[in-house]
Simulated scan of single mutants.
Amino acid sequence: MMKGSVLMYQVATVALLALACSLAFAYDPSPLQDFCVAVDKYDSAVFVNGKFCKDPKDVKAEDFFFPGLDIAGDTSSGQGSNVTAVTVEQLPGLNTLGISLARIDFASYGLNPPHTHPRGTEFIIVLEGTLLVGFVTSNQADGKNRLFTKVLNTGDVFVFPIGLIHFQWNPKKSKAIAFAGLSSQNPGVITIANAVFGSEPPINPDVLIKAFQVDKNVIELLQKQFWK
């Protein structure tokens, strides 16, 4: 089988599994029409939850099309990773369908740092290389947060439950590629370091000093140097 065909097969598998997850465990509201292609806000309209619909007579095939996931993302950032998201923002035809997709590229020892998706469960399939992945539970009856981790190789799949903090790390010198499916058209992402140390306006340092039980200088350094 040609390399391109293998990639297409793997991507199709991800999309189908994500769709099955979305149908079985839907979090976004179920659609009441064939499609609702997203458009920008109309004058005097009210934004509720999601996007406004394009007039069906103006809908085109391009509204359901997104090219370029065969192209590697730029991993030159400090974290050594790149996420190419395909949510309703990039693909308007996803609106109301409760599904989205992402390609994640990792340089050697690259990290997709701890983050959460407040509106979607995520699963990933590794297309190339090796990843160490994991998620942390909410506090259990004993007050502890349990960590689940797994080393994934090519063809392996792992699921991150909705809203839980999770990460993916490439522990090897060679690159890695993964595709992710999410059970929401707009799952959102909260990167922990950015949210805590890089919010605008910044969180009062006294709050962070108390929360992390560290010196003020440490907090000030983190607020200046959190990654973007």
Rank of each mutant, 00 (worst) to 15 (best):
K228F: 14
W227R: 10
A12I: 05
Y27L: 00
I99S: 03
G134C: 12
D206H: 03
F47P: 06
F158M: 11
V14H: 01
R146F: 15
Y42D: 06
T87M: 02
N139C: 12
I71K: 14
S77T: 15
H115M: 11
N95W: 05
Q168V: 07
V196N: 00
A38S: 12
P29Y: 02
V159K: 05
V189N: 10
A141V: 14
D63I: 07
A107I: 10
N186Q: 13
L97G: 02
Y27W: 01
P29F: 03
V48D: 12
S174D: 15
V159N: 05
V88F: 09
Q223A: 09
V136L: 15
A102W: 01
A61D: 08
S100K: 00
T116H: 01
V159F: 10
K228R: 15
V133W: 08
I177L: 15
I125V: 12
L131Q: 03
K228P: 14
T96I: 07
A176M: 03
L222I: 14
V151A: 12
L152Y: 09
L69V: 04
N112K: 04
G80H: 13
S184A: 11
Q213K: 13
L7S: 00
S77F: 09
M8W: 00
P187K: 09
V207I: 14
V48Y: 13
E89T: 08
D156Y: 07
T137E: 01
S184W: 08
I165V: 15
T154F: 07
D55I: 11
K150P: 12
A45L: 08
L69M: 13
G134I: 13
F158K: 04
E200W: 01
G50T: 08
I190G: 05
P161S: 07
K172G: 11
A26Q: 00
Q168T: 06
A12S: 07
V133L: 08
P29N: 00
N153P: 08
A180I: 11
V39W: 04
L23H: 01
V126M: 07
K51A: 11
H115N: 06
S108M: 03
W227M: 13
N204P: 00
F135R: 02
T149C: 14
Q223H: 08
G73R: 03
